[in-house]
C-alpha cells in the first residue's frame, strides 16, 4: 500500500485515536505502528502516515480536515560510496 503523510493540529497531549477521529480515518487507513508524531510542539503540529487514498480524501485537496497534505514520503538512501 503506497502511503503518504498528512499533518494535523491538536492540543497537546494528543493521541492517534483523537487524530483519527478528527480526520475521519479508519484504522486500516492509518499506519498505527508509526503513530502520531509531533513535528513542532510549539505549534501543536503532528504528522500521520496514511494510505494514499485516505490522504487524498482528508488532505488539503480533499475535505480539508487535515492541516496539510498529502505529502510525499520518498525513500532515502546513504550518500556513499559514490557509484
Amino acid at each position: 500500500m503506497a502511503e503518504v503523510l498528512i499533518t494535523v493540529r491538536l492540543a497537546a497531549p494528543a493521541t492517534l485515536e483523537e487524530a483519527m477521529r478528527r480526520l475521519g480515518l479508519a484504522e486500516d487507513e492509518v499506519d498505527t505502528a508509526y503513530g502520531l508524531v509531533p513535528v513542532d510542539p510549539g505549534r501543536n503540529l503532528y504528522v500521520l502516515r496514511v494510505a494514499e487514498e485516505a490522504g487524498r480524501r482528508v488532505g488539503d485537496s480533499g475535505t480539508g480536515t487535515a492541516d496539510g497534505g498529502p505529502y510525499s514520503d520518498p525513500p532515502i538512501e546513504p550518500y556513499g560510496p559514490p557509484r
Partner: peptide
Amino acid sequence: DGLLSDAIA
C-alpha cells in the same frame, strides 16, 4: 534505505 517518515519520527 528507509523512508523520510522514519526520519521525521
